[in-house]
Design a protein around this nucleic acid. Structure first.
Length: 301
DNA sequence: GCCCAGGACGGAA
DNA sequence: TTCCGTCATGGG
């Protein structure tokens, strides 16, 4: 009996089976906008157009050509879940399409979907994201994975460190992660929650406002980070994170809500409550489209 | 050197 | 309760 050469087996385990997922013609999706808009920090695109990123314990490679997704490293089910491809995006975009400003953003960013990120990783990632920029956040998250995560077999990539890893950790290993003053926040929050079995489920069971209060009680998590975690990690689409960019956009397009001068918690409240009332229960999608359109415009020389 | 970046915190007012 | 200075880090 002829045996399969070892090298062939090895090759398959390295690259994984190549799968294709064909989206129906009415399914609006843009892989590049979804991964390039700054909501997740572990994805990079190579010159050939492949996106590579770690989700959970899987290294996923994926690219898009029209309505065809080609990918390795995961399954249809997990891909659909992570990219929220079962979500009726068109209906949601119709519901937030309230004026020419958001309309233009929807036109420009059509197909941008809010991911279903893993809440634990999302939480710690957004502790790394205060008062900084996206490339630095990516670097910190990568260093966290390389320092405390596990190597994914056959690759040079690492998983994001689990809740268990942080139980009883001292901050020593975090020194090399370029976290700056965020180091103690991250260690405190991670240690506190590492002892809470079922933190994710408990949080999921709360109302949006209730979960938001709980998250803001964690070290390093303020209103903005809490809203990001709820939007990107818990699919709470009423969350409307307000960062410096969103504030500028609101000043420009919806000047009644925003102010000049220092950005106060009071103004944050005013903006997010306006957005919830104005755009409706999917205000978070409006936020991402306004943000994505601004970032896209900023990227153009 | 300066200013800014997907802000949050602690203490003063 | 609301301001205000400060907190590492790196890029432009």
């Amino acid at each position: 009996m002829r045996r399969t050469p070892l090298c062939a087996l090895h090759q398959e385990s390295l690259s994984g089976m190549v799968h294709t997922l064909v989206l129906s013609p009415d399914k609006v999706f843009s892989l590049s906008l979804t991964l390039g808009c700054g909501q997740a920090f572990r994805w990079e695109q190579d010159r050939a157009g492949w996106w590579e990123g770690v989700v959970g314990d899987e290294l996923i490679r994926v690219r898009q050509e029209g309505q065809v997704l080609t990918y390795t490293g995961t399954s249809d089910e997990r891909l659909i879940e992570y990219f929220a491809l079962d979500f009726d995006l068109s209906a949601v975009l119709d519901s937030i399409d309230r004026d020419p400003f958001i309309h233009a953003a929807i036109e420009e960013c059509a197909g941008l979907r809010i991911l279903r990120q893993l809440p634990w990783e999302c939480l710690l990632s957004y502790i790394c994201a205060t008062n900084t920029n996206i490339p630095m956040v990516k670097k910190r998250v990568r260093l966290l994975a390389e320092t405390l995560g596990e190597r994914i077999p056959g690759t040079d990539q690492f998983t994001f460190p689990t809740q268990r890893v942080f139980s009883g950790i001292c901050t020593g290993p975090l020194d090399q992660c370029r976290l700056g003053y965020r180091k103690d926040y991250l260690a405190s929050t991670a240690c506190r929650l590492a002892a809470v079995d079922g933190w994710e489920e408990q949080t999921r069971a709360l109302s949006y406002e209730g979960a938001r209060r709980e998250l803001i009680g964690l070290p390093g998590i303020g209103p903005k980070a809490a809203d990001c975690v709820l939007l990107f990690g818990f699919s709470r689409y009423e969350a409307f994170p307000v960062d410096v960019w969103i504030r500028r956009i609101m000043q420009q397009y919806y000047p009644d809500t925003a102010a000049e001068g220092p950005f106060t918690p009071k103004e944050y409240e005013r903006i997010r409550r306006f957005a919830r009332g104005y755009f409706g229960r999917y205000a978070g999608y409006a936020q991402e489209y306004l943000y994505g359109a601004r970032m896209g415009a900023a990227a153009v020389p």
